[in-house]
Design a protein around this nucleic acid. Structure first.
Lengths: 200, 200, 200, 200
DNA sequence: TGCTAAACGAGACGGTACGTCAGGTCTTGAT
DNA sequence: ATCAAGACCTGACGTACCGTCTCGTTTAGCA
């Protein structure tokens, strides 16, 4: 058995149950996959996981907080956060991984949460801090390095370049007017990067 | 007094009240602006508008249908559907108008509805048919014409080109990691079009 | 089918369902008998009766209000309110009927409700107005008449006389230190009335 | 510092805290007075007294047990159990004392506990054994003695006589249809005893 | 002009889920 | 061994909206 998180001073009282925490997240994941976002209620999660509603509310402020944590977990599983080799090639990889990572329930989950984020600034902040900013940081660095190496034109602000690259992917994800195919990813990369490259 | 829609045979019984319809949409709009998406419930709309819930449900299948109609109305008000001069310049205009049109409540409303669309295919279909496809059609035509005139390279599928242009805008709209500024629109246009143009 | 209570002006909107009302009271009665006061929760009543919780709360402010109505109903069933022949004999009858009426679930129910009345003045008021005062009134009148006829001494305030007669019965009911037997009722009547009568 | 109960061999481990016990009862009393029966929850008592819920449950089986102990304590404080001079005069005193003792929170507490007793036989038993039977015993003895001395007629079973005397008092206490005044106590005594006495 | 049919307002209905509260139990570390 | 602290499961609370239903009341066009 893994010893208690001794990093946290472990105040008085019975410690939070890690088993319960896991059971909740697993149940939420199961429900999302099998029955969709709307059916993934706190009530249903409690019933499925065997963890009491009160315990869930002790661990997360609301449904959104729980699902954001789950989303981050699922996404990081599918596409580990990129922390090395900030090259142009890394951008290709990140874009591809992103497309894959957001393919399953996580895409649906992200979309739904962005809907909630519209009404609740806390949700938005949590999504940005938990998911977008960390990954964006890496991509921005890759852009900067490519600019330093002369691979990309320097008159494009890195943040804008990132949006030009990732925007089309997320656009199709959100609106779903057309499917996100492997070919579409290739085309996005090619046509956008050619435009941004100094060889233009 | 506005004459009845006499194109429809007008069967027996009392005709639908156009005043009620307007009152409902106006109340929904008011509530969206003042109290947000979540508070814009059918119940609240009924109370605010003085129109009975039953009557609302006679006119729209559910809350989403009502709000989609409202969204289309508001967007078309702010940015009338582009039906002439399918040129490269039209694309610039459309992109700018889109940014403006989605600036107020309509952006929030669209985001929230896309969240619902995730769970309800009907909502998605209605959004696509009512909002996206018509405007997309115009943009695609503009791209095609520009390709025919040699202004844009021909090896880019028009649908993809549209996504490359509009993706970054919607991306920022949805995620709101950074604001959609006038400058950002300009940069998107410039860097994307330069890349897609034959002058590259 | 009994036509609508046309005594009440029947305002706008769908009228309250009398079937639902009956089903709720019947379910409450059943639960009280079979599973006791504590188990007779709104939730259980809703489940048993098939009437939605919200509908129950629309009809009664809380559990106590519902149970008071049931209590009054049950008691009036077992011992119809005495409205004639205000004689000494009527007192005997009323005392006997009271003992019988409070024998079944109504005794338990009354006790429990008096407990709640302790904490909630509204409950107390409802109990007094719905159950105690009307019947007390009749008994007081009987006493007065008997005093006028010279059957009872006149220096006893009627309200006090009523309490002397009914107190012992309720005392045993509430505390249950000893059972309320037919003999006890007889003894109460005899020894108390002998003391109160002018023949003393 | 109050020395530990050193009569008990003081086995291993930390001795049970008498301070905790007192703190619990005092907190319960305070809460009853200030915020009523419903608000006197175990949770609130624990918070107010600084004693852990676990410890409370070690000392009492449940909330009712705790409150019964408190009730007995409070009542015995206000009206010490009558253990001498079993005379007719003692009955007068006991009745008066009872009225006084049940005047404050103890009346409310007793009523509420009798409500609970309805659903829980243990509560009833505890109340009878802890409060009613001991005092009743004394009153019954007083009656018997008075009968032996010829002060009271002998054809009245002593238990019944006690109920005739105390019933009216408790009746008004429970139902609270009218206040328990000093005059009412006098009247009860006078009219009941006159009836029961051989001088009738 | 009166009949008929549908729309209207009002609001009750059966549901689902919410977030909270207290009950009584269990698990820590500290005394 | 007992304590304070506090997490745990359980069950009920009362509320908010959902979308449907029944009323009695307009409001037209047709007869």
């Amino acid at each position: 058995m893994p010893s208690r998180k001794s990093l946290i001073p472990a105040g008085p009282g019975r410690p939070r149950s890690q088993e319960a925490r896991r059971a909740v997240l697993d149940a939420a994941r199961y429900l999302l996959e099998k029955r969709g976002y709307a059916a993934t209620t706190i009530e249903a999660i409690a019933a499925k996981s065997g963890v009491a509603k009160t315990t869930i509310y002790r661990g997360w402020q609301n449904r959104a907080a729980l699902l954001i944590e789950l989303l981050v977990e699922v996404v990081n599983e599918a596409a580990p956060p990129p922390n090395r080799s900030p090259s142009l090639q890394a951008l290709r990889t990140e874009l591809r991984l992103g497309a894959i990572a957001l393919g399953g329930i996580s895409g649906m989950l992200l979309n739904s949460l962005l809907g909630e984020a519209q009404q609740d600034p806390d949700v938005r902040t949590a999504l940005l801090n938990g998911l977008f900013y960390p990954r964006r940081e890496a991509s921005v660095n890759a852009i900067k390095q490519a600019q330093a190496l002369g691979e990309l034109r320097s008159d494009v602000p890195p943040h804008v370049a990132v949006d030009l690259l990732f925007g089309p992917l997320f656009y199709r994800m959100f609106v779903q007017h057309e499917p996100v195919t492997e070919q579409f990813i290739r085309q996005t990369l090619r046509f956008t990067l050619e435009g941004l490259s100094t060889t233009a």
